[in-house]
Amino acid sequence: MDSIYRHQRHIYDASRKFYLLGRDGLIAGLAPRAQDTILEIGCGTGRNLIGIARRYPGCDCYGLDVSSAMLETAHGAVERAGLGGRIRLAQADASDFDPQALFGQPGFDRIVISYALSMIPPWQAVVAEAIARLSPGGSLHIVDFGDQAGLPSAFKAVLRRWLALFHVTPREDLPAVVRALAEEAGASCQVEAPFRGYAVRAVVRKA
């Protein structure tokens, strides 16, 4: 991941702004309570975490990423935003991490995964791990590329070729996998495909 992002990280947010659809809607839908804890898996440059911390000033925010290069950029962005006291970052494999060791937290009230699963080979394990790390009553919020079923086939073909240049693979079975993992964990699950299937959004709520 460091080899992919060593140079991309400097233009990542500007270059992704117009096609990572649904990120701000995901943040708006978190609706945490005061003093809830919020974790972003695959936090990248810190763009989403900064937005979350500003929107929900009563919450403590955490981010993990496997890329040290991305985390270096995120640390700088967080400090420039004046949020170093409210956002903590750590390097970890999202498919198997210990929140107590990383952050001194047993679990999280909200977990966010935004356009990261399409870049993580063991993405199913990441979803399972995220559900396992939810506190009772917590929720997991996912947005990523969908199957583009409602879009013209030519547009879909061009998009897939473009995404492949950045090592991105839309997970067409994401809705089915998330539903199955939620059911296995005794959690509820809601899935929708906005923008004519360009994206997929899922919310898993732990009882």
Rank of each mutant, 00 (worst) to 15 (best):
G104S: 04
G51Y: 05
I131H: 05
Q124A: 13
I50Y: 00
L163S: 02
L117K: 02
R47L: 11
G82Y: 01
V143G: 01
P136A: 09
A92P: 04
A31H: 15
R54I: 09
R6D: 14
N48R: 05
F166C: 00
R86S: 06
L163W: 10
H75L: 13
A28C: 01
K206I: 02
G46L: 10
R205A: 12
V168N: 00
V204T: 03
I27L: 12
I113Q: 01
Q148R: 15
D24V: 03
G85D: 10
L49V: 03
H10Y: 15
V200K: 04
M70K: 09
R110G: 05
H75W: 11
L26T: 13
P32W: 11
Y5N: 05
E72A: 13
A77D: 06
G146K: 00
P152T: 02
L117F: 03
A182P: 06
L83N: 04
R80T: 13
H75S: 14
A69M: 10
L181E: 13
Y198C: 05
M1A: 15
P32Y: 11
L21W: 11
Y56G: 03
I131C: 02
Y115D: 07
K156F: 01
W162Y: 15
G46E: 04
C59P: 02
G146N: 03
K17Y: 03
A116I: 01
D24T: 08
R110L: 04
A94H: 05
R80W: 03
P32E: 06
G146Y: 00
S139L: 03
